[in-house]
């Protein structure tokens, strides 16, 4: 189920993201460090962390859909706000997202990314996404 959301996304592959379990019912993702994720010397690029948060958000919505749901819906971010709280080190980064609200058209999502300690996030994001049916009406 949730794993498919990640494996179907080329951008998740590009970032090396894998689903490693669940947290509070939502997919738990891991992004192992790779040279292509670096920013300033010794730290992760903020954009790579934002990408991980985006994938976590999509995976969280996908996990709520019925079987095959992921193939029917397109999630289109409308606004994305990322707060960077700590520099990301060159180690694995984890992320999980929570649906604050999922309506028929809009999903409001909160996503968090951390490294060593889930209680000490490197970044959190709030995203408002349009949910669009892929099948022709």
């Amino acid at each position: 189920m949730a794993v498919s959301a990640v494996t179907l996304l080329p951008y998740a592959d590009f970032l090396g993201i894998e689903a490693v379990g669940e947290q509070d019912g939502a997919p738990l993702l891991r992004m192992p460090f790779a040279a292509g994720l670096g920013g300033a010397p010794g730290i992760l690029h903020g954009g790579a962390i934002a990408g991980l948060l985006e994938i976590a958000a999509i995976a969280a919505i996908d996990a709520t859909l019925e079987d095959g749901g992921e193939a029917r819906a397109i999630f289109k971010p409308v606004t994305v706000t990322v707060d960077f709280m700590r520099p990301g080190a060159h180690v694995d980064t984890f992320a999980c997202a929570r649906l604050a609200r999922r309506g028929g058209r809009i999903a409001n999502i909160e996503a968090s990314a951390w490294q060593d300690d889930v209680a000490r996030p490197v970044a959190v994001a709030r995203m408002n996404l349009l949910i669009r049916n892929r099948m022709p009406a």
Binding site: Y11, G46, G47, A50, G51, E54, I55
Partner: peptide
Amino acid sequence: DRRLVSDAVSGILASGPIVSLMDT
């Protein structure tokens, strides 16, 4: 770059690469 899309069917770029572009 097709590796950067969030939806293999539509081919639309994910949001993350655009965040990275703008952050940089």
